[in-house]
Amino acid sequence: MDRRALLRLAAAGVGTAVLCGTSWQSAVATTAQPGQGPYGPLRAPDSNGVALPAGFSSRVVARSREIVPGTGLSWHDAPDGGACFPAGNGWIYVSNSETMLNGGASALRFDAAGTIISASRILRRTNANCAGGATPWGTWLSCEEYAFGQVHETWPDGSRPAVARPAMGRFTHEAAACDPDRQVVYLTEDRRDGCFYRFRPTRWGDLSDGTLEVLRAPADAVSGPVTWAPVPDPDGFPRATRRQVDGARAFNGGEGCYYAAGRCLFTTKGDNRIWAYDAVGERIALLHDPEAVPRGGMAMAGVDNITGSAQGDLFVAEDRPGPALNLITPGGTFSRFLQLPGHQESEITGPAFSPDGRRLYVSSQRGTQGRSRAGVTFEITGPFRG
């Protein structure tokens, strides 16, 4: 999502008042509402079992424990967070592996026509690599989701070995999003009482040193001003980072995190909310609150990974009651864009657009078998707006 897209979001109306700096106080009453999406209803599942709107199609690009076609790489178990990076005339899609002991991340390289030309492992022998985030300098931050998890900086093209970044804190990491304007990295924490953090590198572009801060706000605040305070001991031992600062605001199960043009959006699966942090005004508000959806209307449940398109649409993974990908328009309407019938014991993970915005990558973490070894990674093509 670029700056023009976010300006469209801010000006689009009540559904996106949460993104407009002058309308944050009324955000709870104006959160996104269910409605008709820009692409129409979903069709019956295609030959790959993916239900999409008319004009869209899917292909399988990788399956867990199977050799990626045309390469020598066996795709990892439990594919999770992902992102795309320009690479020559093509691009690279990076995907995490949310498994213990043998986690990490792998990369698929595509040529200009979308053909896979190589695949490689870019991070090995780490634990529960869940989500993460791309940096402006072209690296992938792979986040470990366990009590003393770290952020690992990786190079999608494999040009350098991955490096752990302990200064970014040791906690149950979920996702990361870079804010080049304030030169910070936002971080979510997947705990029932998890916090929302930001990391201030001593030098932008170098994550080896800096200050970890935690967001402070009243315990029940859903909108209004916030402050930030340094975390005294980012190592998180013997006292967890989320318990070191008085007044740190707890969020119920932090998940996906996405930044664009002064706003950081993040999801909390425990209460099915999508939050918006206004980095300019240092305020929070809600973009989606199930309690604000009229009775009988479709509210999102199990919100997870989040990404955006060049048009300004947001794509939000939903894990319950079955894996789906929802679309929130700049006008504040949300609807189903993709559904995976038969994958009820799985999750939608890793949504990311190719650099030209024409292809969307997404995974079913545990496939139709509900097992980490049955993960499937898809490519979606069609008439995406913008």
Rank of each mutant, 00 (worst) to 15 (best):
I306S: 08
V316S: 15
G254I: 07
D220G: 01
G236H: 07
V316G: 15
D233A: 12
D289H: 06
G262N: 13
D233E: 15
G224D: 06
R239D: 11
R249M: 08
G224Q: 10
R263I: 08
D313V: 05
G296S: 09
R263C: 03
R273P: 04
Y259L: 09
C264L: 13
A250C: 10
G281P: 01
R243H: 15
P238Y: 08
F266C: 02
E255W: 03
P238Q: 11
A276S: 13
G302E: 02
L314R: 10
I284C: 04
A310L: 07
F266S: 01
G296C: 10
G254A: 12
G296Q: 06
G262F: 07
A261P: 02
A301Q: 14
A292R: 00
H288N: 06
C264F: 09
I306Y: 06
L314K: 06
G247H: 04
T241R: 06
F266H: 05
G224M: 11
L287Q: 00
L265M: 08
T307Y: 04
Y277V: 03
A276N: 14
F315L: 14
F315E: 09
T268N: 06
A221Q: 13
F266K: 04
F237N: 15
P234H: 13
G224P: 08
G247L: 02
T268C: 11
G262P: 07
G224L: 14
Y259A: 09
A279E: 05
G253C: 07
A310M: 04
P225T: 15
D313C: 11
V222W: 06
D278K: 05
W275S: 14
